[in-house]
Nucleic acid binder design. Structure first.
Length: 339
DNA sequence: AAAATTTGACCGCA
DNA sequence: TGCGGTCAAATTTT
């Protein structure tokens, strides 16, 4: 069966199941948070299904309003469109709004090149030399594009002005399970910290360790990590990013979440990982001395917001419900989180 | 063997 | 026609 059709069916089915769950939670004893989570879950499922059937549909409407650096609006001719239209004429997907959901500037002195790991699994599908740029632009799409119909893509390009800076542009929405998993984990953390006056970043960006194009030049003299978030100057920074020293492997095998929980919620998170509360540009660095036992293998830890369209609320899924029910320390009782 | 990356070809838009 | 974005075969990595 066509993967998109299957995805639509799955999402609609899930929406129905979650709706059923919600019904059981309409009892007065059920918490408001739980009901809210279920509602968000439902909306997310429908949103995903609709986004496949019609790109111009509710996706745009339900996207969190996020300021975007549309420095290089691209055409609407994504591979998604062509792939889909090649397979099924009934699925005509076109975006009316061009442009990238966000742009993140990521600095790293350790390993500077290439795909910036951000908690999601990306598959590189192209690289292009850009006119006027010293460095090529890498094109990535979500690894789960075909398996789960996740349409998120990103571009990574090293800055000409500052070669230690990577400009990452995200586009599309992470609808894969991976997205749900991460947002569900991080958002509450952020909410709690915000409540306390600290302001951490929600998302992770980890630099991959690949070396090419001579980035060793930089890695030899700088190990500090810096993250700069841009394009979020709408007053409400929906993507306060979050940085954390975790090896990419941990991200992929799932232990990453545990690491976050242990190091952040359990109170071991270094203040260095906390981002200053600036609505326009979040910029902080992580000194190697904060990395503790991680530092031997950890060459890069970079953080930046991930796709704007990954609404933290909307991406919550059953895994977050599990946390709600089984992890008393999880700050779900924070009203801000559900607002 | 499977997954991921590389890289030249191809395509559409300006 | 050139450029940016994507495709897809070949190659590399896991």
């Amino acid at each position: 069966m066509d993967w998109e059709l299957q995805t639509v069916l799955n999402e609609l089915t899930e929406g129905r199941e979650v709706t059923t769950q919600l019904m059981s939670h309409l009892h007065p004893c059920s918490s408001h948070q739980t009901r809210q989570l279920l509602l968000d879950k439902i909306l997310r499922s429908y949103d995903k299904a609709l986004s496949i059937l019609n790109w111009n549909g509710s996706v745009v409407e339900t996207k969190p309003a996020v300021a975007v650096l549309e420095s290089s609006p691209c055409t609407d001719r994504s591979d998604t469109v062509s792939e889909v239209s090649d397979k099924k004429d009934v699925f005509k997907k076109r975006k009316t709004s061009s442009g990238w959901t966000e742009q993140v500037r990521v600095c790293s002195g350790a390993s500077l090149d290439n795909p910036l790991e951000d908690g999601y699994c990306w598959r590189k599908y192209g690289q292009k030399a850009i006119l006027g740029s010293n460095f090529p632009r890498g094109y990535y799409r979500c690894t789960h594009r075909h398996s789960q119909g996740c349409l998120a893509i990103k571009q990574v390009q090293r800055s000409d002005n500052d070669p230690t800076v990577f400009e990452v542009k995200y586009r599309g929405r992470h609808t894969c399970n991976q997205a749900s998993h991460f947002t569900a984990t991080f958002v509450p953390v952020s909410a709690e910290l915000k409540e306390q006056g600290n302001h951490s970043r929600k998302r992770l960006h980890l630099l991959e360790e690949k070396e090419n194009q001579g980035q060793h030049i930089f890695s030899s003299f700088e190990t500090g990590l810096k993250v700069k978030t841009e394009g979020l100057g709408n007053g409400e920074n929906i993507f306060p990013s979050f940085s954390f020293p975790v090896e990419p492997e941990e991200v992929r095998n799932g232990s990453f979440v545990e690491a976050i929980m242990e190091n952040n919620i359990m109170g071991n998170l270094s203040p260095a990982f906390m981002s200053p509360e600036t609505s326009e540009s979040n910029y902080f660095s992580v000194s190697p001395c904060h990395m503790g036992s991680f530092e031997s293998d950890l060459t890069d830890i970079i953080s930046g917001p991930t796709s704007v369209t990954n609404s933290p609320i909307g991406d919550l899924d059953i895994s977050s419900l599990d946390k709600l029910e089984f992890d008393p320390s999880f700050p779900f009782d924070n009203p801000e989180f559900f607002s």
